[in-house]
Amino acid sequence: MITIQNVTMKFGRTAAVADASLDLAAGDSLALWGTNGAGKTTLIRCVLGLLRYQGTITIAGYDAWRDGKAARLQVGYVPQELSFYDDLGVGEAIAYFSRLKGLSRVGVAEALDNVGLADHARKRVRELSGGMKQRLALAIALLGDPPVLVLDEVTASLDAVGREEFVALLERLSGSGRTMLFASHRIEEVAALARRVAVIEKGRITGVEPCSQFVAKLGRGAVLHLHLAPRVRERALASLRQGGFAPSLNGVGVLVPVTPEQKAAPFRVLAEARIQVDDFELVSFAHAAVMAANREEARS
């Protein structure tokens, strides 16, 4: 359904994506896994025909650049954060995108019901919470029943509850036969949604493997999600690096991979640097491995 062949995309002299090749059959679900700046979002933007690239990308046989319109007709896209006219009504937004997708019948109520927003049709987009906006983006993505879903770190800016609800919604979708390509650096999300994982580092795809195998390889460790105020994030990154960790930024703070013995250590480092932690979550790889194994068993 999606074929990516030797795709390279450069910003100036720097290759954001270097010689990437992937193949997704119909109904496949592939996660792009990597740290911030690894090239996940750039590759997704190439697939959508937003960025010019060298190489070939086809979606259902249509070239993503030359036949961009026909290729994008096959795709429902959910970005990290919905950027849209804030003063537009929720129902109006659905109607607008239905027309842009060439749908003669605008099923506003049905589209909103699919994502649990039926009671919010009369609200303005700006009145929706972050989680609701993402649901609206998903409702828009599903208009016209496209066979492909492309998701770009869709839960990165959501709180824990919003994220859990959104992932549950996506889990229901993943069984609907659609092909899913998504970027994430949340292991529990990958374990819940992906059949395969493509690891991307500095723009290069370093490996593609079944999800359960990928999660099992991560071992007994965990990822600490630290919620920090935007103004202290860069300082926190520097302090954690000095403390011997390999942190990366995400939508609400920083992610720190930790071993079972050093789960509290990042807090000590940040306290010494006088950086306040607003909230945290600990996602264990072992738990994600169980999730992935259960899903694989359910599929077979």
Binding site: A60, D113, N114, P147, G177
Partner: peptide
Amino acid sequence: SAFAVLSRPLAA
């Protein structure tokens, strides 16, 4: 409601 089960490409 339940999501439609679908994997067929849409005609250009």
